[in-house]
């Protein structure tokens, strides 16, 4: 009986429940008794030194792969273009093409539009993960990572974090363009922080779904359909560009209750002071719910990819 006995007891008790989860994330198993080294030949020492599993290495692997994905943003012209030119095009095209024709009542259309475009752009930005994961699989980089004594699923975390950073960059550019076009928000500093928070949470959720799509896709080309089948309907059948009241009944019921609309309406309410209603907490619940499901599914698929 010593100081740690209660801790050991609790760990023993919850161990059977925790291990499947830790396995899923490929992290260190909680072990109450450390096993003796299995081999005593000349390779054993080498293996002991490098294969040491720990949270430190899990974090350092994740960090290394985040830096890798971040470098991709600036070294891959496609990604840099998507992050910088796309927001300008979206804002200018939607603002001036639809601006005169859509009736948003007493609200100025540019003011109405910014929240919608911001979220649509974030949604498309989040699909980059699926493309990156599919490309890594195809090129064999994921096989290489899996043959290393590392937390290989961190490759997905890297791409997801890159989505967050890229979306922050393009959101910033979009807001500046919007200001030039006459956007006049009423948001306070705290409101802006909340807007950024919701936008990042939304990106995070969609990026993990995106990682699943990247793992399931049979080819890099097939991944493109992910944007087409999921992001297009979700962002257009929403309150992004037009008030949902103008839609036919069935579409309106869908548009008014799907998560993307909640995210858009929550951000819009914070930006220009439209009624908040339940949008804020519903969008947060949706995003967290999606993350809770998507992360373990992505990790499971990643582990079992080509190891049958």
């Amino acid at each position: 009986m010593n100081f740690w006995t209660p801790v050991d007891y609790i760990i023993k008790l919850i161990n059977p429940f925790l291990n499947p989860i830790f396995n899923m994330f490929d992290l260190k198993k909680i072990k109450t008794n450390r096993p003796a080294p299995a081999a005593t030949n000349s390779f054993a020492q080498e293996a002991e030194r490098k294969a040491e599993e720990s949270w430190y290495f899990a974090l350092s692997d994740t960090w290394v792969l985040i830096m890798r994905s971040l470098k991709h943003i600036f070294k891959n012209p496609d990604q840099l273009l998507a992050a910088s030119v796309q927001p300008v095009m979206f804002m200018v095209l939607f603002g001036y093409v639809f601006g005169g024709a859509i009736n948003t009542g007493s609200i100025n259309y540019i003011n109405f539009l910014v929240a919608g475009i911001l979220v649509q752009m974030a949604a498309f930005g989040a699909t980059t993960t699926s493309l990156s994961v599919a490309t890594d699989l195809k090129r064999g980089i994921i096989d290489r990572f899996k043959s290393l004594p590392m937390l290989s699923s961190a490759v997905m975390t890297g791409h997801v974090v890159a989505d967050l950073v890229r979306n922050l960059m393009s959101s910033f550019i979009l807001i500046i363009v919007a200001f030039i076009m006459g956007f006049r928000p009423v948001a306070s500093f705290t409101d802006w922080l909340l807007i950024i928070g919701i936008l990042l949470l939304f990106t995070l959720a969609l990026s993990w779904v995106s990682a699943i799509m990247g793992l399931l896709a049979r080819s890099v080309e097939a991944v493109q359909w992910f944007g087409f089948f999921l992001v297009f309907p979700l962002t257009f059948a929403s309150g992004a560009f037009v008030p949902t009241e103008s839609m036919p009944y069935i579409l309106r019921v869908f548009a008014q209750n799907q998560p993307v609309t909640h995210v858009i309406e929550a951000i819009r309410a914070l930006m220009i002071g439209t009624p908040m209603g339940n949008h804020a907490w519903l969008s947060i619940v949706w995003c967290i719910g999606i993350i809770i499901v998507a992360v373990p599914v992505a990790s499971y698929l990643f582990r079992n990819k080509s190891t049958q």
């Binding site: 299995a38 081999a39 030949n41 390779f43 293996a47 030194r49 294969a51 064999g140 590392m150």
Partner: peptide
């Protein structure tokens, strides 16, 4: 290296180097 690939994959990974059929390198770095 004396380690069973199915039972102790992490130890195996720490003592091997793998060069696959397709150059698995990062294109952008």
């Amino acid at each position: 290296g004396g380690f069973d690939v199915a039972r102790e994959p992490k130890r195996v990974r720490s003592i091997i180097g793998l060069t696959g059929q397709y150059a698995a390198v990062d294109e952008y770095l």
